[in-house]
Design a protein around this nucleic acid. Structure first.
Lengths: 123, 123, 123, 123
DNA sequence: GTGGTCTAGACCACC
DNA sequence: GTGGTCTAGACCACA
């Protein structure tokens, strides 16, 4: 697998797993690959995969059965969206609005753009 | 220089030049490196640099004096911002609002966030 | 066997024996290992085991038939629970309530927690 | 330093740091030892110390200044007590009440004991 | 110097 | 087999 240099590998694994779950390649309550399996598959040290799984577990996206493996939590989808939502509000959105300021784009312009998109999707 | 794989190299050179101008490393009316010079510096084929310069010229950011070289246009800064502004409105903003929709972030939430940032910068 | 450093070994042997009896590994009226046997088994000086047996005898948990050995008393289980009960009330509980105070946990919170557990075990 | 075997070393380091802060050996806003320093002092791999610091940071007890080190957060004391409180309510208290049940200690007995201690501390 | 990340390899308890 | 912890040693960006 290919990793970007500007982001920690374990964070990219977190995103990979979230994507698999959102795309329903890995269904709710399914067992996901063991840290060793996934590590071998994407050519990364199992410890690094473990770190990603720890973060995912802590966010309530996967859970662990001792001696068995990690499983996709029932509320995984909600947890992922919740996490992404928080990131969106604290990072993406502020950056977006700062760029808007920098480019002298008025709030009104953005709002009308928003409404255009809203209407576009209704059709 | 390092290039990303997910974008044409000549477009990355365009951005590089724009950045140099915005950061005022290359001042208005200054001569910029020749396609051969820049090509050697960033280890890229002069033809690729030429393609970038053509696009920049077409956007009114640089202009050419035959037999002498390329120069930063007087209105370069405005042109760049104008280009960025268009890109912002046609690509970034729609993507941003689609993400907002996907994450169930309301317009009101975005507006209040915008105003927070506005006030924050005043202090 | 592994012993903790923060408690006298003979007291840890007392607990070991009590545990064996509570778990019914050693049944009521059964003969338990001689001080030499147990001493060898857990790699401890027979004198230390003797000290533990004396304490257990004094608490009415085991009794001695001269020349034969030690036996689990009929009322052993009751005696052990009585001992544990006293320890619980004089040491564990006060410590527990002091910790509760320290952490600003109200009596009401504890009571409702108690009732939760009570109901939980009925199901 | 001495570590118990029945608990992960990094968790024991977490408790060590919390203790230092509660005892005010390390004051609020003070810089605490670097992962390398503490690692050397207690003869533990810096990575293990790092893991402890990560957990402490995540719980809002310490924070990090890039390239400088870790510092005791202003709300450290509150965060520690909050963490301990949660642990008390979800682990210690249930265990305590189960033991009470096992030893046939009535709720009324516990309550009167609680009130005794309450009065005792007032004098 | 600092934290942060990653690897390789080891050992453990649990199932 | 599984996760979980720990070590030793390496490299990086940041200050």
């Amino acid at each position: 697998m290919q990793f970007t240099n500007d982001k920690a590998i374990y964070l990219q694994i977190v995103e990979l797993v979230e994507e698999k779950i959102l795309q329903q390649e890995w269904s709710l309550e399914d067992r996901i690959p063991s840290v060793r399996e996934l590590g071998a598959a994407i050519e990364v040290n199992p410890n690094t995969v473990m770190r990603a799984y720890e973060k995912l577990q802590q966010e309530g996206i996967i859970y662990n059965k001792r001696g068995i493996g990690f499983f996709v939590a029932t509320q995984a989808r909600d947890s992922i969206l919740k996490t992404k939502r928080r990131n969106f509000l604290t990072h993406e959105a502020p950056l977006f609005f700062k760029t808007a300021k920098l480019l002298s784009v008025e709030l009104e312009t953005l709002i009308s753009l928003y409404k255009q998109i809203e209407n576009h999707e209704k059709n």
